[in-house]
Design a protein around this nucleic acid. Structure first.
Lengths: 198, 198, 198, 198
DNA sequence: TATGAATGAGGATTCATTCAT
DNA sequence: GATGAATGAATCCTCATTCAT
């Protein structure tokens, strides 16, 4: 047991240090030595736990985007009706943009690899599917309640995910002048307006 | 000046070859030799026209995102009223997503560098500002016509740009299963719905 | 002593696994980890029984070429006369080439180290001396019987060993097209012809 | 032209330095840095002329064993009859053993790779075929002259090559005590004895 | 005895950049 | 303008060996 615990600890340390370096220096701008230095260990040890740099970065990605829905699910479930669920979901997404910018930085770094690294692509495909499927569940609920029809939900998940991500990225590019709250407010307003005036 | 013409030609050749390599192999996955090979010239010649690889990639970025509005401006101007202008603008954006995916691939590659390369950041800040300012001009027109008030336009540019980019990126990640048209259609519907039901 | 028995077993396991790896992957192409994996044990344990990789490979060599004569001695001794002893000895050598190619593969691997590893050289010097000395004993018997004179035996051991080894190596290099039996037959024919027509 | 000449010179320098290192340190015991140091150049330059260490060592092999017959052909051709041709050929082989031991050291180093490197194997297969085919040509001449029949030549090339190589290797293993001349003399004697007493 | 985590030197290879021609 | 030979630092990765448990 002690062994497995140590292994888990070490893997976590290495993954976290790597994630930090990706955020601080960028996906292509850090070396295995950087990771080792960050953790005050030898480079060899990293290879004891991960097969290669690619393997390691993929694990970082996996760990970063496993179960994205978890974060939202709780508060949204508690909402009494469809309108509140949607509103709450949007709020949750926006809170992530506000408070977990690092997550979007990581996402941005990996998105740049999507076309050139199958592993990365596979994982991000799943990640986005998960994100959208959660919205789809909300919409399904709305349909069951007779509040919206099928056509209304079509493409909505894609749009919500797109807008959130697009806002987050614009914010990362220009944190000084891009007024995040204005964009988030308009996003929420437009979406709710759509559902409110069907 | 024959000199300047040759210089212009060479610079263009090199920039285009580099752009191609960024699209094909990814930002961090090609060498100066690759560029030279692509053009059947020597690496030395590239350094005759560009100071460094960084300089070159920045020029690629500049050339790729200079004057983004040019593409839309014409058809939109011809539209008789605000509603049509907005609709037309959205169509134009969507056409870019449909037909100029390469542009978004390039954008994706550079976005990953934004936090680690000031030059890149500066250019992309400008690019996004340009994109948004064009929407703002449309909205200004709407205000002048008394169709919308100030609050209505607040954040709208950010949202439109965000949604388009977010849809394009999701499409790049999963071209097989992501249904682009559904997302685009919903995007247009939601936005127009917003303006139509103020 | 149970201790000594276990030690003997472990050492044998390790030596055999190493020999296998030398044959399968080549002298310079396997790691201590490979050996450990082969035996499902830890690398540390190997160091418990052998001082170093060099030490281990030397032990493999020693064990592989200790007492080479043993294999032949029996049948040859039973032969009634000099001619039959020689003939039988040649047959024995040829059987080794036919049926114990692995031995020659090991020899080939170590021969490549002879100039760069004194230990290896010392052992192979002894090995070849042993091989030749056995032929010399046969020839001595012939001399005692008055069948050959001293000059006849001079260099014969070297030649027999050389020809066998040379045939074996050619066979290893090109098992497809090199016709082993033709070479062995000619070898035997030429040698016996020499003794038969003195 | 100047360029091709320089390229040829550099390649030769590198190949020769590598050959020297293989002889001095052994196939698996030298680094690219060693080669660069030997030539007072950078490691990068080696990669300018050769794709990899493997590529380089294969080129060394190719250059070392291209056209092995060249060395013998001249003097043998001048011999008036079959017996003298054979005798002369054997003398030539023996001279190589005496005076070009390095060649056999190189051969020994590469033979150890034969089973684990297809390129090496392919080249050595050809090399040995060439060696044997030259003997076969001599024997064919003998047949044409009616001096030997077909059966007499069968396997003889294999035997001659084997014996020479085997003697050379024993000599390399134990240059102190192995009496080269005794072995060579007996080799020649036995072979000529065979042809003389058909 | 036995494990395997940990080390760190060493190796092959890449690549941006320079510069003599 | 144009070439490509040359550099050498930097990178990823391997592996023999040690040692605490």
């Amino acid at each position: 047991m002690a062994k497995n615990i140590l292994e888990e600890i070490r893997k976590d340390q290495i993954i976290n240090a790597t994630r930090k370096l990706i955020i601080d220096k960028g996906y292509g701008n850090f070396s295995m030595k950087d990771i080792a230095a960050e953790l005050d260990m030898s480079t060899g040890l990293i290879y004891h736990y991960f097969q290669s740099k690619d393997d390691l970065t993929v694990q970082v990605l996996k760990q970063s985007f496993r179960e994205p829905r978890q974060r939202y699910i709780d508060t949204t479930e508690a909402m009494p009706n469809f309108r509140d669920k949607i509103s709450n979901y949007i709020d949750n997404m926006h809170d992530v943009i506000r408070n977990n910018q690092e997550g979007y930085v990581v996402l941005l770094n990996y998105l740049g690899q999507v076309l050139y690294a199958q592993d990365v692509d596979r994982i991000l495909i799943k990640f986005f599917k998960n994100l959208r499927s959660f919205v789809d569940q909300l919409l399904e609920y709305g349909r069951e309640q007779g509040i919206i029809d099928k056509q209304t939900g079509e493409g909505m998940a894609e749009l919500l995910v797109a807008a959130s991500m697009g806002i987050a990225f614009q914010h990362i590019v220009d944190p000084e002048e891009f007024v995040l709250e204005k964009a988030l407010a308009k996003h929420k307003e437009v979406i709710l307006h759509y559902f409110d005036n069907l």
